[in-house]
Simulated scan of single mutants.
Amino acid sequence: MTLTVTGVSLGPARHVRPAAPAHPGTRLAALDLFRFAAALGVALFHLVAVAGTGGVRIWDGPPVAVFGGFYRIASYGWVGVPFFFMISGFVICMTAWDRTPGQYLRSRFVRLFPALWVCMTITTLVATVYPRVFTPVPFRAFLANMFLLADPLGVPRVDDVYWTLWLELKFYLLFLVVVWIGVTYRNVVAFCLLWSVASVLAAEVGQPWLDALVMRGNSHYFVAGIAFHLIHRRGSRPELWLLVAFSWALSIHYYEGNPWQASHGMSYTPSSILVTICFAALALLSLGHLDRLRWRPLATLGAATYPFYLLHYVAGFALVHFVVRHTAVGSVPLLTAVTVALIGVAILVSRYVERPLADRLITALHGRR
C-alpha cells in the first residue's frame, strides 16, 4: 500500500525558503563533515582518554602524562555521540519522506547491517589474533551481535561502542510509526512532541521498561535533529525552535551527570559549550548557511564514517598496544598514524566491501514484494 505523505502546515511560517533537499537521496556535504568530526572526536576520546582507565591500558604510561594538555581536550570527545544522534534524527526524517514502510525498512536495514557485519568480523578476527587487549566473544554472542540484539539479550558486545547502535535501531523502529501513518509535517511534529513529553514523564514514573522504550537521556538529541530537518525543509517556525530549545535544555540537564565527567573530575562547562556548538552547527545547516559547502572528499569521509566508528575501538586499541610494545615510535605520531590508518581501512571497507554488499542486498530485497 502506498501512503500519501502530503505535508500539512500547523500555522503560517515567519520565514519560508525552499531549503530542503527535493529528493531523499540529496547529499549535504555539511552532514558528511559533521559525521566525520563526531566520529573522530569519539575515536580520540577512546584512544587517548579511555585507554588509560580500568583494565585497558595501551600506552606506556597514564594518558594524562603521555599527552599532556591534549588529554583534557580528548576527554570531551564523547560529545560526538550525542552529535551522532542529532545527525541521525536529521537524516532519518529526510530519507523517510515520501517512502512507504517497506521502502523505509529496507533502506535502514541496508544502511545499518552490511557495514556492521563486515566490521564485526574484522573486529572479532583482531581480538582472536591479538587477544592481549580484548577477548573475542563466544559464537552465540557473535550471532546476537549480528542483529544488534546483544543489549536486549544480555550477552557481551563484540565491541563496547556498539551500544549506540541499539539506540539507533530503536529510533528507527519508533519513527516507523510515523512512516506507517504518513510522514507529514503535522505528524512528524506530533511525534516529536509526544516523544519529548514521554521522555520527561518517564523520569517521574521510574519504570525501567519505559526508560528503555523512550530512551530517556538521549531521545532529545534525535528530536532536535528531526526539528532541524523540518526547519531545513519548511523554514523557521516557532513550534520547531521551541522543540530545539527544549531538546537543548534537556541535553544540558542530562550531561551534567555524565559518568565520565563525574568519575574523572572533568569540568561541566566544556561539555555544555560543545553540546551547544553541536546544536548551533545543525542550526546553521538547517537555515541554509552551509549549503555552499561542496568539497568532494567530504562525501568519501562521510561514507567511511560508519565503518571507522565500528572499527576504531578494538582494532585501534590492539594496534596501539602492539606497536607501543614492539617499537619506539612516539605517542603523538603513533596516535596520528593509527587514526589515519583506521580511516584508510574504513574507506576501503566502505568502497570495496560495504557498498557492493549493500547493492546486492538492495537487489535481493527489491526482488521480494
Rank of each mutant, 00 (worst) to 15 (best):
Y104C: 10
F191Q: 03
P270Q: 09
V349K: 07
Y352I: 02
G235P: 15
Y172I: 02
G68I: 03
F90N: 04
D98A: 13
L167M: 12
G52S: 12
V329P: 01
R132E: 15
E256M: 06
V79G: 05
A303Y: 12
A203W: 00
L33M: 04
L335E: 03
W166D: 14
G89M: 03
L3I: 15
T164G: 05
T327V: 02
L148F: 08
L153T: 14
F90W: 03
I87D: 02
T100W: 12
A337P: 13
V275T: 14
R17V: 10
F45P: 01
V42S: 07
F191W: 05
G344T: 09
Y352T: 05
I58C: 08
R157D: 07
W78Y: 15
A43T: 03
T26L: 06
P63G: 05
Q261T: 10
L335H: 01
T26I: 09
W241D: 10
G302R: 00
G41H: 06
T6C: 09
P333M: 05
T121C: 13
D211A: 03
V133P: 14
T269E: 14
V81K: 00
F142P: 15
L167R: 13
G154W: 02
S331Q: 06
Y130R: 09
R368K: 12
T53Y: 07
L125Q: 08
Q103R: 13
V56R: 11
L153N: 08
I226E: 10
Q103F: 10
V223E: 08
L285Q: 03
R351T: 12
F134P: 15
A249R: 07
F139N: 15
A280F: 09
P138Y: 01
S251D: 06
D151N: 12
G235H: 13
A20D: 12
G288V: 01
L143V: 14
G367F: 10
S219C: 10
A51E: 05
W166Q: 13
S75R: 06
